[in-house]
Structures are given as structure tokens and as C-alpha cells.
Design a protein around this nucleic acid. Structure first.
Length: 505
DNA sequence: CACTGCTTCGAGACTTGG
DNA sequence: CCAAGTCTCGAAGCAGTG
């Protein structure tokens, strides 16, 4: 009887355990299913967005082709396509100094339209056939405006919903331009342009690269899609701060950039994947840079009108560039914050050791110029670029000669000749440059612009020197002395001479 | 593999504007 | 005069070609 009783108890215990196990298994299966469902939902959304984008671009392509057929007789002007090029000058910028790097090429005397819609109405369109494939990636202005409107409707205090953010994210990675941005109108293009004359004049360039500070409010609406609620940024900062800035191994290669990110970041403390992370991270990263620029610790809101969003180039890799740039900026911001907490003098060294290639500071990289901290402070003081350090500078006592030395060093700093530092960063690719002009010039790499045209063959070049070099091939001018006339081009000796002269030039 | 042409960038020289 | 902006040259590196 006793054993029978024991058996019954055992069975009941087993049943209870089995039920508990089943319940646990069910629970876990449900959890997993939920996760999978979530994942599927997100994938579905991605697919939908991509589908919509595809349709949008297909329509755009059709329109564009129509325009090309109509305007194909503008052979030169169509050479350029202008992706929006976002350039970050790693100099201290006031909130009003944000620059619009969009390489929206415009005509000399035309005032810049204040929004996409206006441009769509006012600008004639020229697109070269070869550029169509690239134009395909550009955003439909109407669609963009529509989305912009949605965004502006949600920006007043309320953080965007997941769907909305997701949608926004999609458009962040789209170039924030109209198709008209990618083409130019050449009212005077009836005749050939002046040979070798860049179609983008210096004045235009400076205008193009500094329009953001004058950006009208309505443009901000379209540009500030990236703004999200502040908590998210703080949350992200905390997350990454825990990992430490050096957890990010910022590499030149954008792909590696992602792999260098702590994979654990995508999971919440419970180990569950955080699917919202990807949807919000870019926004967070994006806004995270602004305080650094403005020198204000609070995160600017959309109404601040501070800080441009990043607009990806209109290429398939745009997303990657975009996210990579965001990541870099975010890391810089983190480092910047870290530096602010560090003792003076330690910051630049430490940060440089942490990240010597992609310097971290979003505030002026002058901080990192190790040649002379006082030089840096001098620069900042004189330019008024960094009020925080200006007061620190007052602590320096400089003799006249020291002052001259500082001045000289400052000049060297500006050119980056001494330190090799590169305070100007292309936000598209994260590459740094020693001089602003080099950065601006670099922008054509992303924009695809080729402002210099060979008068002989019409081939276009990004730089005048390239065009000049090319033109030498037409006139038969060899790099060797003009007195030396090759017997014939196939002559190995002559060829050797040419080659040597070329390389000894 | 050598040559050629092109792209891209660094940096000195020069210009411009305050 | 100086800071900022721009022009220009030269070099490195890459891809195409024979």
C-alpha cells in the first residue's frame, strides 16, 4: 500500500513537473514566435518600403527618361549629377553655422529655391542618359514632401511611432533632394561653355556649401527628419558609454565599422533582441552630434533648427554610408563627452590613442592637435570658436616671441602641415582633410560632378588639373620638354623618354 | 609587365574681404 | 595685415590596354 501511495505521489509530482515543463516550453516557444513575428513584421515593413521606393524610382526613371529625350541636346550640362553631399567641417560651429552640403548646383544669379517643391517648379531639367541609373536612387520630391509633412506633423513633442520612425529612417537614407537636385539647368547653355570653366563657380560653391546656415524653416522640416526624442539619445549614449568609446574600432571601411560595434548592443538585458534599436539608432546618432556642435549639452530639438540631417548619397550604398557616418559621429560625440569629463590635457592624448584615424571630436578637432595645446587655445580664442576654452587660454602667459610662435603654429595648424591633422570631415565617407577646399573638392567624388570639360572631346573632369593633363593627350604635348618631339609614338626609346620625363617632371 | 590616362588628394601659392 | 577662401601643381595609386 505504501509503495502504491508513493507511486501515486511520484506520478502526481511527475505530472506537475511535466506540466510545468510544457508550460515553460510553450512560454519559450511563444517568446520565440513573438520574436520571429516581430522580425517578420519588420522584414515585411522593409519589403513594403523597398517596394514603394522601387515603384517611386521606377516612375522617376520614366519621367527622367522622358526629360532626357527632350533635352538631350544639352550634352555638356548633363554630365553632372549632384548627389547631396553632406560635409562636416570639424570646426566649431555655432548653431547658425551649419552648412548645407547638398551639392545642389544652381545657376549664377538664381536665388536658391527654399524648398524642393520650388525647385521642382523653377528648374529646367537636364539629365544625361548615363546618370539615369543613379538618378533612380533619388527621391521623388512629392513623396519626400509627403513624408516630410507627416514628420512635421509628428515632430511637435511626440516621438514618432515605430512605424513612423521606420518610415523616416527609410527616408533618411534617401538623398534629401529632388530629382531636380541631381540635374542642372543651364539657361545659357545654348552655346558651348567657356572651355575648362567650372560650371560651378567659386561663389556658387561657397553658396552651396554654406546655405544651411540660411536654411529657411520649411527646409528644416525636410532636413530634420532625423530628430527623435531625447531619451532615446541618452539611452543610446548610456548603452555605448557602458561599452566605452574604445569598444568602437572605427575603421575606414564602413563595413568594418559595423562589425566593430559591440554585437551585444542589439540585445536588451534579458538577452532578447531589441528590434527597435536599428530603427532608432540612426536617429539617435544623428541627434547626438548636435550638442557637440552647438556647444550646448542639451539635445537640440527640431525647433532649434540646429544641425543638418545626414543625407545619403543616392546610391545603393547610401544606407551603409549613412549609418557608418552616423556611427562615427556618435562615437565622436561620446568621445567628446568623455573628453569633457577628463582632466585638461589628458583628453587629446587619450582620445587620440583611442581613435587615431577617425578622430573622435565633433567639437573642433583642434583639441587633438598635440603640437601645442596653447596654440589650440590661441586659435580657439582668436576665432572665438570655443568660448569654453577661451577662458582657459587666459591662464597662459605668453611672451611676444612665444606669441609669434603660437601665431606661426596656428597658421601651420590651419594648414595642417605640422600636425598632419585633418579637421575637415566628409560626412559621406568620413574621410578627413587638411583643408576646407580639399574637402569641398572631395565632395565631387560623391556628387559625381565633373565641372571641367575638355574642349576637344567634351570629356569632363572633376579637377582642372585633370582636364589639363587630359588635354595634353590631345595636343600631343608630352610631359617631356616641348623641344623633344617623339620620332613616333611607338618608338620604345621615345616611349621611355616620355615615361621618364613624366615621372621625373 | 610596362605604359598611359584618369582620379584623387596634399599642400604651397595666391586672392579676397574685413 | 591677417584670416579665410581659392587656385594650382605635383604625386600616388588605380584601371585599361597592348
Amino acid at each position: 500500500m505504501a509503495s502504491c501511495n508513493f507511486q501515486a505521489q511520484l506520478v502526481s509530482i511527475m505530472e506537475i513537473l511535466a506540466k510545468a515543463a510544457v508550460a515553460e516550453i510553450n512560454k519559450r516557444v511563444d517568446d520565440s514566435c513573438a520574436v520571429i513575428r516581430l522580425e517578420m513584421t519588420q522584414s515585411q515593413r522593409d519589403i513594403d518600403v523597398l517596394k514603394r521606393k522601387y515603384q517611386m524610382m521606377e516612375g522617376e526613371l520614366k519621367k527622367t527618361r522622358g526629360r532626357v529625350r527632350r533635352k538631350a541636346f544639352y550634352p555638356v550640362a548633363s554630365e553632372r549629377s549632384s548627389y547631396p553631399v553632406k560635409i562636416v567641417l570639424n570646426k566649431q560651429r555655432n548653431s547658425s553655422q551649419w552648412r548645407d552640403g547638398e551639392m545642389a548646383v544652381e545657376e549664377d544669379s538664381q536665388t536658391q529655391p527654399t524648398d524642393v517643391e520650388q525647385r521642382a517648379e523653377t528648374e529646367p531639367i537636364l539629365i544625361k542618359d548615363e546618370e539615369i541609373a543613379e538618378d533612380v536612387w533619388k527621391t521623388d520630391p512629392q513623396e519626400e514632401l509627403r513624408i516630410t509633412g507627416e514628420e512635421s506633423g509628428s515632430k511637435s513633442g511626440q516621438p514618432p511611432s515605430f512605424e513612423q520612425r521606420h518610415c523616416d529612417e527609410d527616408f533618411i537614407t534617401q538623398p534629401n533632394i529632388s530629382p531636380e537636385d541631381s540635374v542642372e539647368h543651364y539657361p545659357n547653355s545654348d552655346g558651348p561653355e567657356e572651355p575648362g570653366t567650372p560650371r560651378l563657380t567659386s561663389a556658387e560653391k561657397s553658396k552651396v556649401f554654406s546655405t544651411e546656415q540660411h536654411r529657411p524653416a520649411e527646409d528644416e522640416d525636410s532636413l530634420e527628419l532625423v530628430m527623435v526624442k531625447d531619451e532615446k539619445k541618452e539611452e543610446l549614449d548610456q548603452t555605448t558609454a557602458l561599452a566605452g568609446p574604445d569598444r568602437f574600432v572605427m575603421d575606414e571601411t564602413d563595413g568594418q565599422l559595423w562589425t566593430s560595434v559591440d554585437p551585444g548592443r542589439d540585445t536588451d538585458p534579458d538577452g532578447h533582441p531589441d528590434f527597435s534599436f536599428h530603427a532608432t539608432e540612426e536617429y539617435s546618432q544623428n541627434i547626438s552630434i548636435f550638442p557637440s556642435h552647438s556647444g550646448v549639452t542639451s539635445v537640440p530639438t527640431m525647433t532649434d533648427g540646429v544641425g543638418p540631417s545626414l543625407h545619403s548619397i543616392g546610391k545603393p550604398h547610401a544606407d551603409m554610408f549613412s549609418t557608418a557616418a552616423h556611427m562615427k559621429r556618435h562615437v565622436r560625440t561620446l568621445a567628446d563627452e568623455t573628453r569633457q569629463q577628463m582632466p585638461e590635457g589628458q583628453s587629446s592624448e587619450t582620445l587620440n590613442s583611442n581613435n587615431d584615424r577617425n578622430s573622435l571630436a565633433l567639437q573642433p578637432r583642434q583639441h587633438q592637435y598635440r603640437a601645442s595645446e596653447s596654440t589650440v587655445r590661441m586659435s580657439e580664442c582668436m576665432t572665438g570658436s570655443n568660448m569654453a576654452t577661451t577662458s582657459t587660454f587666459s591662464g597662459y602667459s605668453l611672451s611676444h616671441s612665444s606669441f609669434n610662435m603660437v601665431k606661426r603654429m596656428r597658421t601651420q595648424w590651419r594648414s595642417g602641415s605640422t600636425t598632419g591633422e585633418k579637421p575637415y570631415t566628409c560626412e559621406q565617407c568620413g574621410r578627413n582633410f587638411t583643408k576646407q577646399y580639399n574637402l569641398i573638392r572631395h565632395a565631387v567624388v560623391h556628387s559625381g560632378e565633373k565641372p571641367y570639360e575638355c574642349t576637344q572631346c567634351g570629356k569632363c573632369f572633376t579637377q582642372r588639373s585633370s582636364m589639363k593633363s587630359h588635354q595634353r593627350t590631345h595636343i600631343g604635348e608630352s610631359p617631356v620638354s616641348q623641344n623633344v618631339v617623339p620620332a613616333y609614338l611607338g618608338d620604345p626609346h621615345t616611349s621611355l623618354m616620355l615615361s621618364q620625363a613624366r615621372w621625373n617632371k
